[in-house]
Structures are given as C-alpha cells and as structure tokens.
C-alpha cells in the first residue's frame, strides 16, 4: 500500500481538523526516519501530514525563562540559532551528530523524540536539560517531561490525533552547562552504541548544586538516572563522586547485545561517556567563568 494522501496544513487548527477522521496518518517533520521507514516497508501510512508549513512548529523562541523549539524546527536551524547552541552546547552536540549535514538540514529534535529510538541522540540531551513536551490533542493541551514521553522502543506517549507542538527547555541558571557524548565505531554517519547527556550546575566554590544525568541506547528508552545526579550534587565533582555516578548509570543500564555491541560493552562504555560528559560540562562552566 503506498501513501494515498499528502496534506500540508498551515495552522495548528487545520492540522487538528485533518486528523479528526481518524484515518491512519503519519506526521511528517523532516522525514528522515519516516521516509526511510516507508521505503523499507516498516511503516505504511495511508496519509502523510507535513508539519513544516505551520509557523509554531518551526519557530525557535527564547524569553527570560525558557527556550521553545518548535517540534519540526530543523536541527540546522537550532544549531544556527544565535543563542541556543551557547545556552545548551550539549544539545547542540547531540543534534549535530544526527546523520550527515544534509540530514541535519531536514531532521528535527521533535521528530527525533517522536521516533523514539532507544539510540536517539537528542533525547538524552533533552532529558538532561529538563525539557518538557507541549502536546496538542483533540481534548486540548498537555505537558509531559521528555523522560516520560518515550514509553518503549519506537513508542511514544502521543494518543491518536495528538501532536507534539514544541519542546520547552528552562533557561539554565548561572553556572550551568551541559554536554552530550555518544560512542559510535565511526566518527559520524553512525548510530549510538551508548549515549550520555549531562547537565550540571556548579557554584563559585566548585560545589555541584544541581545535576541531571541521562543515558541512551542502554535500555528500551533513554533513562534519567537520578541516583547518578544525587551522587554529584553536593560534591566538588571529585573522583569519588564521579565514580559513584558512573556506578549508578552502569547499574541503571539494561542493554541488549546486538550487532552494534554487547550488553557488557554498552554497560561499560556508558559509564565512560557519563564521566567524560561531566568533565566536559564542568570545563564549559569554568571557561564561562574565566
């Protein structure tokens, strides 16, 4: 069965109207997963609804408290925004790792999230930054934390007719930075064997006052590892604290062995990535202060 219908609504209300009849539809943002899925026969929507003509969905807005990234805003647009990469260098690292330059021009953080791959690069980075999902559905709006949005491999929390409108990231407080690292055998054009997103806040004395640690590709969904964050908060990010955080993420990881790596390897290397991501975020904070 080929795609029978392609619709390009220009407003959220029009998009809502379109899906009202309940026919099997797929939202299209960049299409870098959807089109590949259709070609491989893994996805077979009768109707494809393009989201890129809806202004809210491609907008990137920044105010005093938050950064709002439209769900279909391309990774390229986020990466070339005047503020987002400096506010969230780790998120920028993650988006920049998705595919080639050409893919980065099409793909979106919202699409990467909705596709809900366990190995998605942007999801741990979004979780680390406490991102919230603004969802619009037939019954109105709701908000969900990114860590709760993905419910299983390639399964998200959207009900029929619901649409991810935007991602809302709280503006990081002073002394905060983030970092994302993944392990791939190749330098690029590859998929994470393990990934780690970390955001930390460090005060003038060097004490870590807040932390969020997220890991990817080592469980059915990306995980927020609160035990790892607790190991860091209150510490000077000394070796003992780092070791405790590493042990916590290794304990939280429940990876599978597959063609991309063994469970043992993934468990080991996700700890290495978390340790290095903490160091990178810490260095960014120090650099901003100096």
């Amino acid at each position: 069965m080929a795609v029978q219908e392609f619709i390009s609504p220009t407003s959220l209300s029009e998009a809502q109207l379109v899906v009202g009849d309940g026919a099997a539809s797929s939202w299209l943002a960049g299409g870098t997963d959807l089109l590949v899925g259709i070609r491989l026969g893994a996805r077979d929507p009768a109707r494809v609804i393009d989201l890129k003509q809806i202004p809210e969905l491609t907008a990137i807005e920044i105010d005093e408290t938050s950064v709002r990234v439209g769900a279909a805003a391309s990774a390229f647009d986020v990466l070339h925004n005047s503020d987002v990469p400096s506010l969230f260098p780790g998120l920028a690292e993650a988006l920049n790792l998705i595919g080639s330059t050409q893919i980065t021009g099409r793909c979106s953080a919202g699409g990467n999230l909705c596709n809900a791959s366990p190995a998605a690069d942007s999801i741990p980075a979004l979780i680390a930054n406490g991102a919230q999902c603004r969802i619009l559905g037939p019954d109105g709006e709701r908000t969900l934390a990114v860590e709760d949005f993905v419910v299983g491999p390639n399964q998200n929390a959207l009900a029929s007719g619901e649409l991810l409108v935007e991602l809302i990231l709280p503006r990081p407080p002073a002394g905060t930075s983030d970092a994302y690292l993944r392990l791939t055998p190749r330098t690029e054009m590859d998929i994470a064997v393990a990934g780690a997103g970390v955001s930390i806040t460090v005060d003038e004395s060097g004490t870590c006052t807040a932390a969020r640690v997220a890991i990817g590709a080592v469980a059915p969904t990306a995980l927020l590892v609160e035990v790892a964050a607790q190991a860091l908060v209150g510490s000077q990010l000394d070796q003992a604290a780092i070791d405790a955080a590493v042990a916590a993420v290794r304990a939280a990881a429940t990876p599978i062995s597959d063609k991309r790596g063994t469970a043992e390897y993934r468990t080991h290397v996700v700890g290495v990535l978390v340790s290095r991501a903490i160091a990178n975020a810490q260095a960014r904070i120090q650099e901003a202060r100096s």
Binding site: P185, R186, T187, E188, M189, D190, I191, K259, R260
Partner: peptide, 16 residues
C-alpha cells in the same frame, strides 16, 4: 545477514 546496509556495515567515512 543482520547488517545489509552502510549503517551497520561500517566502511570508513572521510572523518575516520
């Protein structure tokens, strides 16, 4: 064959 494509059959890319 479990890796019949360039994603999981990893020939080097230029940056490697």
């Amino acid at each position: 064959l479990e890796n019949p494509g360039f994603l999981d059959y990893r020939i080097p890319v230029a940056s490697d």
